[in-house]
């Protein structure tokens, strides 16, 4: 960890607690994103701290998902998308030419809005990542990775007797946990979650939220959510986006109880959005 970068994301941010200072896992500086001629993000500065959950909230179209997809260069797959500024992962610019995007995505995993298991068996879904990255040397080792990942995603007990049955046959909540297990299997350092519970019922949502809290000990998590209750429940820090600008970022408690910006206040009290 480099200790020289200091947090200057927003002038309105409350001072971070002492034990959290200088443990940024990822930093974004002056990030602008364009889709063709249209600018979607303006000058975003944000720090993502290690072993924390950070929520990105804001009304639809505010750029929070766009920002999330910048963090593992998923925007590369969109035609006409251009990112400027600097995004660093452990002090390494991930948009630098010499960087291998495959390696970035292995280190920064992603869970999508809609559960998207591959039409393969549960086992093969989890084994997919380790296989393509050649992470295991033997079958036994691969099996261990699969089992551990499923255990960490809290799914193993439910599926241990049917690892060979198709992943698409699971329930929505189970599918989403399978996708989390799939992401964990490549041992990422950061996990990005794009509204991971929006397609799930409240019980499945509660399970995933519980899971996020456990995963925090090993991983750094960035979650985009439309549910402010969810942001309040799962995250240590919260960032509020509006119309492509990062309006305010700070500790979750502070954002929800004592927002510094009027727009944040209006949004979390339900006056717009």
């Amino acid at each position: 960890m480099d200790a020289t970068i200091t947090t200057e994301a927003s002038p309105t941010e409350a001072p971070a607690p002492a034990e959290l200072v200088n443990n940024q896992k990822m930093t974004a500086r002056k990030v602008d994103v364009f889709y063709g001629d249209k600018q979607a993000l303006f000058d975003v500065d944000l720090d993502i701290h290690e072993h924390q959950v950070i929520s990105l909230i804001g009304p639809s179209g505010c750029g929070k998902s766009t920002f999330l997809r910048c963090l593992n260069r998923m925007n590369d797959t969109i035609d006409g998308c251009r990112v400027t500024g600097a995004i660093e992962l452990d002090d390494q610019d991930i948009y630098e030419k010499s960087i291998d995007v495959v390696e970035i995505r292995a280190r920064v995993g992603m869970v999508f809005q809609k559960p998207n298991p591959f039409p393969k068996s549960i086992y093969e879904n989890v084994a997919y990542g380790p296989r393509i990255h050649g992470m295991t040397r033997s079958k036994a080792e691969l099996e261990e990775v699969v089992v551990t990942s499923l255990q960490r995603a809290g799914l193993f007990e439910e599926v241990k007797d049917r690892l060979e049955s198709p992943g698409t046959g699971l329930s929505g909540g189970q599918q989403q946990r399978l996708c989390i297990a799939r992401a964990i299997a490549v041992s990422p350092e950061v996990i990005l979650m794009d509204e991971p519970c929006s397609a799930l019922d409240p019980i499945a949502t509660a399970k995933i939220e519980e899971l996020m809290d456990e995963l925090r000990t090993n991983y750094t998590i960035v979650i985009v959510t439309h549910s402010m209750q969810q942001a309040a429940r799962v995250s240590q820090r919260t960032a509020f986006f509006h119309l492509g600008y990062l309006v305010e970022e700070g500790e979750t408690d502070q954002i929800f109880t004592n927002p510094q910006d009027d727009r944040t206040h209006d949004y979390i009290t339900g006056r717009f959005g």
Binding site: T77, M110, N116, P119, I132
Partner: peptide
């Protein structure tokens, strides 16, 4: 979403096609 899922795990385009899309 399947293409995204595969790319999000760090698969290259040809890996995605061979192992996810074609099956």
């Amino acid at each position: 979403t399947l293409r995204d899922g595969s790319a999000g795990l760090g698969a290259t385009k040809s890996e995605t096609i061979r192992k996810v899309i074609l099956p």
